[in-house]
Design a protein around this nucleic acid. Structure first.
Lengths: 214, 214
DNA sequence: GTCCGACGTCTTGCATGCAAGGTCGCGTCC
DNA sequence: GGACGCGACCTTGCATGCAAGACGTCGGAC
C-alpha cells in the first residue's frame, strides 16, 4: 500500500506501521527477537516511539514483550488459521443477522452487488491481488453495516492476522477465484432476501473452502 | 478485587490496573480528561509508565489519546449495551457450536454443573456480587473451552466493558437472579445434549432478558 | 459592547541518561 | 573433557529534559 513514511506523521506511528507491515508480510518471521534500539536505528527514531509501537503490537498479539530481553514476534500458532476463520465467521454471521433484523438487508445487498461484479472482472483478468482486496472489502462491508463498533474493530484485527496467514501460507490459484466470486454472489443474494440463516450457511461453506486452500 | 499495588510489580502495570479500574467502576466518568503528569503524581510514578498505561487503555478503546491535549475517557456510547451483548452472544454461540462439533460438549457441561449449583446458592443468600462473578465465570468457561485464543481474549475485553456498564447502569434485583440461574442450567443442559442450536436460542433469550434489565 | 490577537500555561512527542537484570561466553577448577 | 562461576555486553524500565503545539485568558482596538 502507501508508504507511511511522511515526515510529518508521528514517529511512533511510523514505527508501528513499519514493524506491523514487516510482521504481516512475513519479512519478520515468527520467533524473531527485536530490540527497540535496533529497530529505532533502522527507521531513524529513538527507542521511545519504537517502544510505543511494540506496546501497540503487543496489544494486538503480534508481539510478546519479554522484560529485559526484547520483543519476540508471535509465531503462527498451529491452529491460527482455524481460529481466525472461525472468529470471522462468527462475527460476520452475527452481523448479517443484525442487518436482516434491522430490515436493511436489501439495501446493504444493493451496495454489495457492484462489489461482486468487480470481483468477477478480477477473475477474468486473473488479478489475484485485486480480487483478494475486493474480497476483504466485501466481508468488511457486511460487518461494518451492522454498526457494531466493537465487532468492526475486532474484525479488522482478524483481517490483519488473515493477511499474515496469506503471506505465509497461501498461494491462491486463479481457478479458485471463480468459485469464490460465486460464493460472494450467493452471500449478497441471501442478504437481498433478508435470510440470515442462509447467509450463515453459505458463509460456513465459503470459509470451509477457503480453509481447505491452506 | 485485589489491590495490585505490590511495590515489585512494574510501575506501568500498576498505572494500567489503577486507571482501568477507575474507568470500569465509573470513578472516572466518560469524557473525563486525564493528563499523564497528574495521574503519575497521584500514584507516585513518572509520566512514562502512565503514558504506557494510556496506550494500552487506548488499544482497548477505553481511552482516546488526543495529541497534546490529554487522554479522554471514552464515553459510554448510546448503543454500547447492545453492541457488547451482541458481540458476546455471537462469540459464545460460536464457541458452543465448536465445543459440540468437537464432541466435548458433555464433558464441558459436566464442569459447568457445579457452577450452576453455586449460582443457586448465591441466589438463596441474595449475594448479587458473587452471583455476577459466577455468571461471568460460566460464560467465560464456555468460550474458553472452545480453545480459540483470539475469541477468548476478545471476550475478556467485552467482559471489561460489560463490567463498566454494570457499574454505570445496572442495579441488579435479587428476584432476577433466580431466572438467570435457570437460564444457565438450560445452557448447560443444551451443551450436555450437544445441541448448539438450542444453546444459541437459550443464549439469545438470556441475553435479551439481561438487556431488558438495563 | 464586541471582536481579534498575543501571551502564558498546560499538554504531549520524543530523545536521552541511568540503573537493574538477563544472556552468553570464557576461563578455571575438578 | 566437562561443569560451574564470573564478567562483559545487551536488553528494557523508568525518570527527566526540551521543544512544539493547543487552549484559554486578558488586553486592546474599533
Amino acid at each position: 500500500m502507501s508508504t507511511p513514511a511522511d515526515d510529518r506523521t508521528p514517529a511512533a506511528e511510523r514505527a508501528y506501521a513499519i514493524v506491523k507491515q514487516q510482521i504481516l508480510t512475513g519479512r519478520l518471521p515468527g520467533g524473531a527477537l527485536l530490540s527497540e534500539a535496533q529497530v529505532g536505528a533502522e527507521i531513524g527514531v529513538s527507542r521511545t516511539p519504537v517502544h510505543e509501537a511494540f506496546l501497540r503490537l503487543a496489544a494486538e498479539r503480534l508481539l510478546t514483550l519479554e522484560t529485559r530481553r526484547g520483543a519476540v514476534v508471535v509465531p503462527l500458532a498451529a491452529d491460527e488459521t482455524r481460529d481466525v476463520l472461525e472468529a470471522r465467521e462468527a462475527i460476520e454471521a452475527s452481523a448479517a443477522r443484525r442487518v436482516c433484523d434491522d430490515a436493511r438487508a436489501a439495501q446493504v445487498a444493493a451496495t454489495l452487488a457492484p462489489s461482486v461484479a468487480t470481483m468477477r472482472e478480477h477473475v477474468a483478468t486473473g488479478d489475484v491481488e485485486a480480487f483478494v482486496a475486493a474480497d476483504d472489502a466485501f466481508h468488511a462491508a457486511v460487518v461494518h453495516a451492522a454498526g457494531n463498533a466493537l465487532l468492526s474493530s475486532f474484525y479488522a484485527l482478524l483481517g490483519d492476522r488473515q493477511s499474515r496467514l496469506r503471506h505465509q501460507l497461501l498461494r491462491v490459484r486463479a481457478y479458485q477465484l471463480a468459485g469464490a466470486a460465486d460464493d460472494h454472489a450467493a452471500l449478497a443474494d441471501a442478504l437481498a432476501h433478508g435470510d440470515p440463516e442462509r447467509y450463515a450457511r453459505v458463509l460456513h461453506e465459503h470459509v470451509a473452502r477457503y480453509r481447505g486452500a491452506l
